[in-house]
Design a protein around this nucleic acid. Structure first.
Lengths: 114, 114
DNA sequence: CCAATTCGTTACGGTTCTGGAACAGTATAT
DNA sequence: ATATACTGTTCCAGAACCGTAACGAATTGG
């Protein structure tokens, strides 16, 4: 249970967005970020179809986002050997570190938020 | 002064991103969102050059984002009559409502965040 | 009054994302 | 065996974004 007034929420959101824009890494799109967080915060397994359903987007959106974030090293793909039609989306060390930094960043800015 | 642990921050970020992706409106890019929040939360006046400097991006990035968000009705442009080289970025009723909804959304999800 | 500066915009070529449709591969059911 | 269903990927044309560079308009300084 966390108390956060709308004005505080916007200030926090603002600072986090600014930090994302200013750092040198290319920005993730909103959809990519939503996929990344779902993979790391929701319990596995994660499939393309499942992610598409949860985000309410089409499957090619997931495939392309996994392509991009795979190149970045933020997620990995593996075929499901029990049903070889499925692709299992897996976490990576780099992805875990990336999100850990993001969490720390937001938390630190929250402390300074009026 | 607001206490927010990194894990809570990520959960909150996740929910907010999911809500953004699932609604029907097209997603703003990270840069567009940063510009929008700066215009509404930082004291005016806001110029293209000033926004570019604060976000550490090039001027065309600001121009293009203002074009897009102008069409969406989220911001407006006006020439500065005191120095007609400048363009002043102004708030709109629609933009204010948009951010108010965003703030409420994040705040509501914060309450439910473990 | 003319040159130099500053402002925002536009033009360029390239990359990435978008939705919709078609696709090959795998599994299931008859 | 054959048809059907399901998964993830690829293809397509269109739209949006990117950084760099050039640009016209407005102001300032000599």
């Amino acid at each position: 249970m966390l108390i956060l007034k709308p004005g505080q929420a916007l200030n926090l959101w603002h600072k986090a967005m600014l930090a994302q824009v200013r750092d040198d890494d290319p920005d993730l799109t909103t959809r990519q970020m939503a996929i990344l967080l779902t993979v790391y915060l929701d319990p596995p397994p994660h499939t393309v179809r499942g992610l598409a359903a949860q985000l309410e987007v089409t499957k090619p959106v997931i495939t392309r986002a996994l392509d991009t974030m795979g190149i970045m090293g933020l997620v990995a793909r593996r075929r499901d050997e029990r049903d070889r039609r499925n692709v299992l989306v897996q976490r990576t060390v780099d992805g875990a570190e990336y999100l850990q930094r993001l969490g720390d960043l937001i938390a630190n800015e929250a402390i300074e938020t009026a």
